[in-house]
Simulated scan of single mutants.
Amino acid sequence: MTDRAALGGIVLHDLVKSYADGDRPALDLPELTIPPGSFTVVVGPSGCGKSTALRLIAGLETPDAGHIAIDGADVTDLPPGRRDLSMVFQDFALYPHMTVAENVGFGLRIQARHDRRRGLTARITRTGRADAPAAASRAEIAESVRRACALVRLDGKEHRRPSQLSGGERQRVALARALVRGPSVLLLDEPLSALDAQLRHHARAELVRLHREFGCTAVLVTHDQLEALSMATHLVVLDGGRLSQAGSPQEVYSRPANTFVAGFLGSPAMNLQPVETIAEGSATTAGVGLRAPGLQARLAGPAEPLPAGPVSLGWRPADGVPEAAPAGGFGSAAGALTGT
């Protein structure tokens, strides 16, 4: 685990989580690395283990086996408050009787109270003063709150209550409350699902902007594959509690590892056509023939030999080029296509 943890970011190794009412683990990840400073989006259908993975990273759930490392430190047995992370929940969980400023600064006030009781040094970073000589004062907390509100563009609305805000503004309050502590990791559990389509589109751009300005490692959980492809710098696809594929959005979209990823990502999804392989030319000739009703094609030199019998040919709708049927029809030799 030590060598893997030294990589930075978030490393999940041999992580297993089961629930009593399940016949299989809710999450089973032999190895998953989330690059430091990335905007990683975990995507998959409902029940695939996305939120479970996020709650394990946050420390809200205890794994049955395995290890979790954040920025080189094993945090598997640490409580949530000592993991240097913040989390934004799906329902925002704002206090209705508090103003925007009071909601954003609530965690800092509680931390300062504990620091004074324990005689510890306050630790407000990134959005506030660092290395303060004592527990954070009211003025220091107020300045940190002001900066966090400005970061999410809530200037002038600090004295409003959640009932006086729109859905997008309440979402930004939850983000400011998470960012004000200056965490190294920001966890987002489907924070945009309660917003309407137009507001969700704007919120995606805001989240990407905040990540670029703040520079922390962000992990967003969503079931919306369009959201995942448009926001992620690193994409993780889960299915049935297991890792299907991880990589850049372009890599996962263009070269899916299996038919689940091919069918799940993309709107419309990748075309999947069962085809028969045909031996073409001599052993020195590059190319494999593929045939199905209404289709003949040749793949130029695949990296590995295809198995005999039926295989699946996949292509994105945008990659297709319509052509008129040849005179002999697709079933004849004259109808062989030569694309790649």
Rank of each mutant, 00 (worst) to 15 (best):
G72H: 15
V321P: 09
G81Y: 15
Y95F: 14
V261R: 02
T40I: 05
T338H: 12
N103T: 09
L15G: 09
K157Q: 13
T40V: 06
R4F: 01
I278N: 14
V16W: 09
L295A: 07
R160P: 03
G335N: 05
H159F: 05
P256K: 03
I124F: 06
A130V: 11
S267D: 13
G281P: 13
A327M: 08
V11A: 14
E227W: 10
L207G: 03
D28A: 12
Q171C: 01
G8R: 04
D21L: 07
G167R: 05
A218P: 10
V42S: 10
R146S: 14
V275M: 13
P274G: 05
P45S: 14
G335E: 01
R170W: 04
A122R: 10
V208D: 08
D21R: 13
V145P: 04
R4C: 07
E276Y: 13
A334Q: 13
G72R: 14
Q225F: 04
L210S: 02
E140N: 02
A122I: 06
G8K: 03
P293G: 03
A136V: 00
P293Q: 11
I10E: 03
P293L: 02
A303Y: 11
T340S: 12
H201K: 13
G9D: 05
D319E: 15
S38Q: 07
S38K: 08
Q164W: 00
L290H: 00
T285M: 15
A333F: 00
D64G: 15
S86Y: 03
H234V: 12
D21C: 03
S166F: 12
G167T: 09
P80R: 12
R116M: 14
G128D: 02
R212M: 04
G240Y: 03
V221Q: 08
S248G: 15
A286V: 11
A308D: 15
L151S: 00
G335K: 10
R161V: 00
P268I: 09
Q111P: 04
V41G: 05
A262M: 07
G320K: 12
G167L: 07
V219C: 07
G301Y: 14
A324N: 11
R255F: 06
S144M: 02
E280Q: 15
G167K: 07
L85W: 00
Q164Y: 08
A218C: 14
A53D: 03
D84S: 12
A334F: 01
P25M: 06
T121S: 11
G329I: 05
L243T: 11
R160V: 10
T340K: 09
V288D: 11
D224H: 08
D319M: 14
I124W: 03
N103Y: 00
Y95V: 01
R153Y: 02
R138W: 07
C149F: 02
V221Y: 00
T285G: 12
I110C: 10
P249D: 04
S312R: 12
P162F: 09
T222Q: 03
L290Y: 00
L210F: 04
L7N: 13
M1I: 11
Y253K: 02
L27S: 09
V288P: 04
H159A: 13
A334T: 13
R200V: 00
D64Y: 11
P268H: 09
